[in-house]
Structure formats: structure tokens, C-alpha cells
Design a protein around this nucleic acid. Structure first.
Lengths: 342, 342
DNA sequence: ACCTCCGGGGGCATCGATGACATAGAATTC
DNA sequence: GAATTCTATGTCATCGATGCCCCCGGAGGT
């Protein structure tokens, strides 16, 4: 009761007020087809007067395109993701897409749920950056022709692109840097080794050493967890176990931060006693004590490349997917220096 | 060409394969109405065989409910938001809602766009945490009966709730702490004062001092920007301007981190020369040097309260909005200590 | 004067799922 | 055994926007 003029506020209501048909309203609002300027003005006036907004569900239903994109990540609270999400979302908005964000919390089961929801929402494309996968569901997405972009992992196939992070080059720059400073005993704290990307970084480290003719000492490779706690423990272990390294490269910045703390706790100083290199260059890297030398990999770049890749696939320019490389770059701050006795 | 059995994969296709009507399929899948177990099994078999997922747009169109929630924030890269988003999204998923995330980048214009998109997507509710508002659009949302939850700002009205952060109490705890340690000259670095919440925190600080009979010295109140740079500059200014304070409270943790750096750069030590208290207790607060004493305000709590508030409004339990308070709690670490000469 | 063309605009089926209503049998009641 | 109730299922309008098809009337051609 008390409906006053509200009814449903749809295209029909506008048509009534403008004394035209719904078809004309649609044509006017979408600027498709020919409409006399005078008529168009009547329609626009009615639409703005009523504060009309088209119903996207009805649109999606008839057109088959939802202008929705899915973004699936493992865990938003991982400091790498916010920038990624930000630039992805920003580009999407610019192109009139909305973004459905879901996270898997590192659980395959939740990944399954995420993919199913994307399917139900009829998203126009999905960008995925998680360590866990539900291959069956992914195939289902592909089978229905939903464009996919994988970040950091996955395969390229029909309507699937792949944004790769150039770990090899990044780690290589880090190794070159400390070797150039004169270091020989160089340790590496890895990420959790069930992660593909963590294994890649470790391998890149070993390759980098070899390129300088340094033999990697297995005792100087420790597994971390990509968290500060993990870095702290791994570093503490390195310090306890015999002759400590003079430089330590870390699989990510949080690990490096943990390592800084372990060194501090042991009464040693960075970089005088031990040099530390991080990876990712998260914003806080400039604010550690001392400021952290790190390999910058712009999460924002990853996000925007993912959007571009998706956009291209949606446009149908390319049916076969592409591979994109995110560049990395060493940022030297004050956590690295010459070893004590060269 | 090459259609094979694919057709459209809708409820009708399932009905055909199971030799029933679409209504029966709908009833089976939604477990509404009575269906003979045997019939139900036929339907389920057909549905799973075809890997069928309901079209949410069609559902939303007919039911008027989209099972979508909007989440509007200023800026995802602000380290406060990820945890908030995480817990909001997590609860939403548990209740079969999807989340559309948008950010305003602190621009009112983008806020307008965000709200319009929410309206078009027919979201079932919106949670908002931004400093900028488009009051006209917000009213539009309210007028259409879209449940709203504001975090940290805004008014309570019909179908609008409000999640408040208990700044007064948090700041009060911080002040009590340093006063108990024996400090008298206590400075405060504010956030950007065009932010309502920043002004609230400053006022809480002044009130806290007064409660201890300490007169606030205007020279000891400096405006920051809620960033590390801002904190660094404000702290540097405090150090230059005559007799420095023995303790500094900061409007957020990034500000405190900047302050730590400025003190370090000046060759002074924390907490021996100056004590520092932060606000927010972001994850990294335990990893500064020294670890930061801070007032914990769980961003996750804010997110989950916002969801609960929204859920209650959607359920229609309460037409009038409610006010929720997020508690705060002082976490003492090593950046605070007794003043040099008590 | 008649036909053709075309700009402008209305009618209606359509997208997929739902639910109110209708109906055919079976089960229950008197 | 007829009347009445269920129970299980089918029919069909509906949600809002779109786009195909058709129609009307005026301009231009012969």
C-alpha cells in the first residue's frame, strides 16, 4: 500500500511518462537505432526525473554478457594482493566492469565453491592467483568459453592467458648484487616448498650462484613460510648451525623482516655482519630498520596485466592465450653491504 | 554449427532429459514443494550429468534478490582494509552471498559511480567505509530500501546501521599507559584533519590528557597524513621545535613507523629517549624496531560486524538501524618505557 | 497517380527461473 | 461407491530489457 507513483521503476514506466514504447526507450538509452532528437530528449527527461537505473540482471539475461569479472585470490591479507586487486579493479571499473572478489583461504574446497559461483554469475572472465587449483572446475570454465587468466601459475590454452613473474631474473639480480659486493657464503630462505612459485625462486637462486661459480651449500638453504615468523626461525637456525652466511636472500619481504629480527635478537648488525635481500618490495620495505634491499615486483603490474589479458580475450581478438611477463628490478637500500672481511 | 547436445544448458534441457516439466526441476533443485524421491533422483542425475548451474541473473530477475553485497572502501591498499574485506567476504560466502568490491580512491566522483553500479546490480545491501560521501546517491539507496551499513562514519536511519570504532576508549588507554609510565610532555601526531575519524582521535587525546590534569600544549599537536612520510615529517618538526616531548601518540601505525624513523635519524633511541604509541595494531606493528606499542582495533572485527549488521537488516528483523561498537585494546610492546628523568 | 524507399517507432517473443494456479490420479472419508 | 481430500506434476504468466519484425507516412522516382 501507499504505492504512489513508484510502481516498479522500469523501462515501461519511463515509456509511459514519455509517451513512447519501451523499444524506443531502450533505443534511446543505448543509443542504438534511430530516434528523433526531440523524442530522445523526452525519454532522457523522464529517465533522469525518475532516477532510473537499468536492471543489470535483465540485461545480462538477454544479452548473455554480465559485465562482471571474477577475481580469485588465496588470501587478501597477504600484503602482495591489495595492490594487485587495486589496479585490477581500477581498470575494470574504467571499462564498465564490476569485480566479484573471492578468496580461497588456501583451501581447495573453497576454490571449488569460488569457481561454481563464477559460473552461476555468468562472469565474462576470471583472473586467478592462487596456489591451489580445482582442475576439474577450471576445465569446466574453459569448456564454456569463459576467458581465464592465471597469474603466477597454470597453463596457457584456448582462451587462457598467463601472467608470469620473472623470478629468474629478479633473483638473479639479487644474487649478482651480493656477489658484486664480495659475498661468497650466501644463504637462501625459501617459501613453503609446496608452492610452485617458491620452488621456482629457490631454483633461480641456485642457478644464480652457479653462474658465478659458487657451489650452493645445502645447509645454507632453509625453508621458510613466507611469513615473518618463518623468516625469524629460519634465520635463527642459520645462525645456530655453524659458520653463518655473510649474506641472506629471502623468498619474500616478510621472510626478510623476520630474518632482520632474528639477527637483531642475536646481537648482530645488518648489514655490517650480515646482508639481507628481500623479494617483492612491499611498501613497508622502505620502513624496516635498516631499510630493506629488495627485488621489486610490482603487484600492481600483475593486476593490470591480468586485466589487459582478460580484456583481450573477452574482446575475442585472440582465441589462443598469451604469456605476459612482469618485470622485476632490484632496489638497493641499506640492508646490504660489503662483507666484513672480504 | 557443431551444436551437439549443448543447446543452452538451462532448466528446460534438464527437464527434457528427465522427462519432467521445468517446474518440477525447479522444485527439486530448490527443495521447495513436494517431489517424489524417484523423480527427484532423475532430475538430480540429469543435472549433475550436464554439470548444470542455475543462472543467477534469471533468479535475481524473478525474485528481486540478487544475493550480492556491495562493499565500498576508499582504498584497498590502505593496510587497514585487507583484513576488513577478508572477514566480510568470508562471512558473506558462508551465507551464499557474493561480494562486489569497489574503491573510491578518495574521490567523490568515483563514489557516485560506485553507488550507481550497486543500484544497477540490485545488490541486497551495501557496506561503506570511505571518508567521502555522495549524500544524494546514498539517499537514493536508502529510498529504494537497500540496507546500508556505514563503518566509522555516517548516520543511523531506517535500514541503516553503523559500526563505530571506539576511538575514545582506545586513545584513552594509550594516554593512560604513557601517563602511568611517568610521562608529562606528551605529543600527538594526528591524521589528516579533514577526516572525521582523525579529528575524533585528536579530541580523544586531548580529553585523555585533561582527565589526568595535563594541559595540552598546542605545539605538541602536529598534523600528519596517516602515512609513514607524514609521521616522519611531523616527528622531525617536533624534534626541531624546542624541547621535545618524552612520549608521542600517533593517530595510526604508519604514522608511528614514520616517527620511529625520524627519531632514529636524529640519533635518538626509542623508548629510552622518546616513547611511541601507535594506533590500529596492523600486523607489522610487531615487526618494527623496536616492536610498536599500539592500540589494537581489529579490522576483521569491523568487517564481520558490518556483515552481521547488514545481514540483520536484510533479514528484516530490524527496520531501524543499530549502532555497533568495535572494541579497542592497548597492546604493550617495546616502543614505550619510563621517561629518562622522572 | 502509383510504386519504392526509408526514417521513426510500436508490438511481441525472448533470455532462464520461479511460483500461482490447474489437473490427473490416488488415497481417504462417509 | 460416490464425494472429498491430498500429492505429484504440468501450464503459463512473470521479472526487465532487448532486438527482430512490422507498420505508418512522407519524400522521391517514373
Amino acid at each position: 500500500m501507499e504505492e504512489d507513483g513508484e510502481r516498479q521503476l522500469n523501462i515501461g514506466e519511463i515509456a509511459r511518462r514519455a509517451n513512447v514504447s519501451t523499444a524506443t526507450v531502450s533505443r534511446t538509452l543505448n543509443q542504438s537505432g534511430a530516434v528523433r532528437p526531440e523524442t530522445a530528449r523526452k525519454v532522457w527527461r523522464a529517465a533522469t526525473a525518475l532516477n532510473y537505473y537499468p536492471n543489470s540482471h535483465a540485461r545480462a539475461l538477454v544479452s548473455g554478457r554480465s559485465r562482471l569479472l571474477g577475481l580469485i585470490v588465496s588470501d587478501i591479507t597477504n600484503p602482495f594482493f591489495p595492490e594487485l586487486i587495486h589496479s585490477f579493479e581500477s581498470l575494470a571499473t574504467q571499462h564498465q566492469y564490476d569485480v566479484i572478489l573471492t578468496s580461497t583461504d588456501y583451501q581447495t574446497l573453497r576454490m571449488t565453491g569460488c569457481v561454481r559461483r563464477m559460473l552461476e554469475r555468468k562472469v565474462d572472465g576470471v583472473a586467478i592467483m592462487t596456489s591451489e587449483m580445482d582442475l576439474g572446475l577450471i576445465k569446466e570454465l574453459a569448456r564454456r568459453g569463459v576467458p581465464l587468466v592465471f597469474m603466477d601459475v597454470g597453463r596457457v590454452g584456448a582462451r587462457m592467458s598467463h601472467v608470469l613473474i620473472d623470478y629468474a631474473n629478479g633473483i638473479r639480480q639479487a644474487v649478482d648484487h651480493v656477489v658484486d659486493l664480495g659475498h661468497k657464503r650466501i644463504a637462501f630462505i625459501t617459501g613453503p616448498l609446496d608452492l610452485h612459485s617458491a620452488r621456482t625462486r629457490r631454483q633461480a637462486f641456485l642457478d644464480g650462484l652457479r653462474a658465478h661459480g659458487i657451489k650452493g651449500d645445502p645447509k645454507l638453504i632453509r625453508e621458510g613460510t613466507h611469513t615473518a615468523e618463518g623468516g625469524q626461525q629460519a634465520m635463527a637456525a642459520l645462525l645456530r648451525a655453524g659458520k653463518p652466511p655473510t649474506a641472506v636472500a629471502c623468498s619474500n619481504d616478510w621472510t626478510a623482516i623476520g630474518a632482520l629480527h632474528a639477527i637483531d635478537a642475536a646481537g648482530l648488525r645488518v648489514p655490517d655482519d650480515i646482508s639481507i635481500v628481500g623479494f617483492d618490495d612491499i611498501p613497508l620495505a622502505s620502513y624496516t630498520n635498516p631499510p630493506l634491499t629488495s627485488v621489486r615486483m610490482s603487484a600492481g603490474d600483475v593486476g593490470s596485466m591480468a586485466f589487459d589479458a582478460l580484456f583481450r580475450l573477452i574482446g575475442g581478438d585472440r582465441l589462443e592465450g598469451d604469456v605476459y611477463q612482469v618485470p622485476t628490478k632490484l632496489v638497493v637500500r641499506q640492508s646490504t653491504g660489503k662483507p666484513k672481511r672480504a
